[in-house]
């Protein structure tokens, strides 16, 4: 029988790695929701497209995994900026139901497109050898891939923190989230901030889709399949709150992993119980300052 310490570290490490993938995929939506108040339910489609690009260039052109990930992010950033100008720009200020219908529609178009070009089945990823296998961490063995995902997640967190807190773009972004009209008044081009933020958010989704493909297999239904998890993170984070969404994503990962490990038959919905409880207690988001 394995020791309690081994089980606990299992829950922590696997939960955190799962949570960090969710974070990378969701953070873009948290930011753009906060900025533009657009309910972009097609956000998961960017993650799926990112994953498909990465695996596509790996299998078809033999491009190494790190470069494939870069290609995926670059491709999705370009695509998303074009889409923002052509499609999403029409949604700013539109009623929420219109936004939901439109972006769900985009999801179905992407699902149909992926099915036509890549078939209805899983699109398999072959991770490079240096990411497969286990490494002995003293307490127990761990998959190298999971550790890699954790490392990437932490890099994204630090990168985003620097961008938000230390750059002038970050300051503009925070200003635009808090009060878009006042930000305009002082001469900041909020539309440009929108486009850049939208591109970054979609690029991060692509990054999550690509590096997470070993954990969340790519399939045409990806944009819908993981939508609920992404929305959980977004709903509990509050608008544009990165710190909260990191905490929520990791919490979701750990609770889900622990739930399935400890009480497998209930494991499927423990996370939703947590969601309901938190929504009742903190409807504005986990770390949002309460209005006076």
């Amino acid at each position: 029988m394995a020791s309690a310490a081994s089980s606990l570290t299992f829950i922590l490490l696997y939960g955190v790695s799962y949570g960090l993938v969710l974070f990378i995929i969701s953070i873009g939506l948290v930011i753009t929701m906060g900025l533009m108040r657009v309910m972009n339910l097609a956000h998961g489609a960017f993650a799926a497209i990112g994953g498909y690009i990465a695996v596509g260039v790996m299998t078809n052109f033999g491009i190494p995994f790190p470069l494939a990930v870069v290609a995926a992010v670059a491709g999705v950033v370009a695509l998303s900026v074009v889409l923002e100008r052509l499609v999403f720009v029409n949604l700013y200020g539109a009623p929420e139901l219109d936004q939901v219908l439109m972006t769900i529609g985009i999801n179905f178009i992407v699902i149909g497109g992926l099915t036509i070009f890549f078939g209805p089945n899983v699109y398999p990823i072959n991770l490079p050898d240096y990411l497969t296998g286990n490494v002995d961490l003293g307490i127990r063995n761990f998959e190298i891939y999971r550790l890699f995902v954790i490392a990437m997640g932490l890099i994204v967190v630090v990168g985003l923190w620097i961008m938000f807190e230390k750059t002038s773009f970050g300051a503009k972004l925070r200003a635009a989230v808090d009060n878009p009209s006042m930000t305009r008044v002082i001469g900041i081009n909020v539309n440009r901030v929108f486009i850049i933020a939208f591109g970054i958010g979609s690029g991060l989704a692509a990054l999550g889709g690509a590096i997470g493909a070993g954990m969340l297999p790519l399939e045409p239904y990806y944009p819908m399949k993981y939508l609920v998890l992404v929305l959980v993170v977004v709903a509990l984070s509050g608008f544009g709150n990165m710190r909260a969404s990191l905490a929520v994503a990791v919490l979701v990962g750990i609770v889900d992993t622990a739930g399935r490990f400890l009480v497998p038959s209930l494991g499927g919905f423990i996370i939703y119980i947590v969601l309901v409880v938190l929504m009742v207690l903190r409807p504005e988001g986990l770390f949002t300052k309460r209005a006076a």
């Binding site: 799962y18 739930g259 497998p264 494991g267």
Partner: peptide, 19 residues
């Protein structure tokens, strides 16, 4: 174990079985 259909990450089940 009954594995919920909503399962995305299967490692918790692999862990239980391995133990």
């Amino acid at each position: 174990d009954n594995v919920p259909l909503s399962t995305v990450d299967f490692s918790p089940f692999a862990e239980r079985i391995a133990e």
